[in-house]
Amino acid sequence: MNIFRLAGDMTHLLSIIVLLLKIYATKSCSGISLKTQELYALVFLARYLDLFTDFISVYNTIMKVVFIASSLAIVWCMRLHPLVKRSYDKELDTFRHYFLIGGTFVLALVLNEKFTLQEILWAFSIYLEAVAILPQLVLLQRSGNVDNLTGQYVFFLGAYRAFYILNWIYRYLTEPRFTRWIACVSGIVQTGIYADFFYYYFISWKNNSKLKLPA
């Protein structure tokens, strides 16, 4: 474990806490894409299959449980909670995310470390995570104004993978045979997708103005 990876995991945890706070405090999920939340739940379920087979560390196990439980709780909240589900922007959240699931799964069948179910699902979860934010970014562009907590949620979500890139560089330099090409290339693509959001987020922070994404 290095400082970059710890910072990345904590930033990821923070993004989930900010999202839970927004939903709990405002009893509303307006501006949040249910499709992105469903994709994240799928990412964690596909990636943490080894939760019960490979014990890495207490930290690793606890974080996996927290990520799976929180992503399922958010999906449950947005679909079933009587008060919250009414504020879901159903007509704005129209990204055809099934194409993302199909495309990334086919890619995982072709590009994986080993043609075993666990490795294919791991690669699938890595590719899917890279594109999972797209429905959310599209929804933000459509809904025009972005409330602070939602903006912070997306910002932390993008920042966490940027820390992971620093972690992979650090591990590549310090561990003799560390290569994790699938995660690293996919992580760079994932962080790149946030680039324009980061730009508009920085502008709105600099001008102290409301975050607006061009339609």
Binding site: D50, K64, E113, R180
Partner: peptide, 10 residues
Amino acid sequence: NANNGIKDEL
């Protein structure tokens, strides 16, 4: 280490 397929990262 990370090469024997064990995914030690989240």
